[in-house]
Amino acid sequence: MSAKSMSTESMSAKGSSSVTVNLKVNNKAVTETCAANTTLDELLREQLGLSGTHIGCDTSQCGSCTVHFDGRAVKACTLLVAQCEGAEITTIEGLGTADNLHPMQAAFRECHGLQCGFCTPGMIMAAVDLVHQEETLDEQKIRKGLEGNICRCTGYHNIVRAVATAAKKMRN
């Protein structure tokens, strides 16, 4: 297997090793040109400076990089930027701000649903989608629904409480 360097050929019928993609990130229109092998997490962190989306593994297992793609939770490490043409991406920075927290963010703080904070943005984004998708949530559904996110600090006990608390608020 030989290494191949990046190049910035222009778009042609033969496809292109660089892509220009139009998407919305946190409600702002973004047009970015990047190498075709750029993943969404790299775009967010390195080109857009949105460092709240974290990278915790390289096998699409840990969920630290979870963002919303057209409103649904996805792992940004497993999406090419090229696949995001026309997409609306929401990251933790777009969910709520310090003076206007999303109920899920508030509940994580209130219930001590985080410790080191590294898995937290992905966990919150996954949890928001979970609440949107499930009409009713109990402890078991929450635990199952967060299967795609690993936390090493909390033992999940307080994360589960936080999601249940936020779900009530989000539905009111």
Binding site: G63, F69, K75, A126, L130, E147, G148
Partner: peptide, 9 residues
């Protein structure tokens, strides 16, 4: 299959 994020893609 997989987890929620995987099922979404």
């Amino acid at each position: 299959i997989g987890d929620a994020q995987v099922r979404n893609r």
